[in-house]
């Protein structure tokens, strides 16, 4: 066991990890931040996406030890203390960008990273960026709409039937 320290959602957190402990296990089991989900555990589905030093990564395919000393942001770090949602979260609610919600933490973290890199993405940009995030409920249309709306663009131009 090694004791790891990282800044998670702005707070310094420490916990113990084995060599094989994945970052997602450390977040969920050790730090009890269970908002980050494990869908496939094979780096296909993207439900486990968190930001490590500002960049989205699949936390099921990174060892916790690799994140020692890093800055981590998870879905729990999105909404304000008083519960006010971020623009991306609010848009997912407004445009019904989720059904069961299992993929949503990863979708929100990927979408947030996209809008930081590319504040006015096209519909094609959004679809391309979400290649590594799988949703089995929505058929993606409303997720795309939500992210487009969160970027401040008029969603009527891409409104799905």
């Amino acid at each position: 066991m090694t004791t790891l320290t990282m800044k998670v959602n702005g707070k310094t957190r420490t916990g113990d990890a084995e060599g094989r402990t994945l970052l997602v296990q450390f977040l969920r089991d050790e730090l009890e931040l269970t908002g980050t989900h494990v869908g496939c555990d094979t780096s296909q589905c993207g439900a486990c996406v968190v930001h490590v030093n500002g960049k989205p990564v699949k936390s099921c395919t990174m060892f916790a030890n690799e994140a020692d000393g890093a800055e981590i942001v998870t879905i729990e770090g999105q909404a304000a203390e008083d519960g006010t949602l971020t623009a991306v979260q609010q848009a997912f609610q407004d445009h019904h960008g989720l059904q069961c919600g299992f993929c949503t933490p990863g979708m929100v973290m990927s979408a947030t990273a996209l809008l930081k890199e590319n504040p006015k993405p096209t519909e094609a940009d959004i679809r391309h960026y979400l290649e590594g995030n799988i949703c089995r409920c929505t058929g993606y249309h409303n997720i795309i709409k939500a992210i487009y709306a969160a970027s401040g663009q008029d969603v009527s131009s891409i409104a799905a039937e």
Partner: peptide, 9 residues
């Protein structure tokens, strides 16, 4: 290659 999260690692 892969997807954005994979490309970051």
């Amino acid at each position: 290659i892969g997807d954005p999260a994979v490309r970051n690692r």
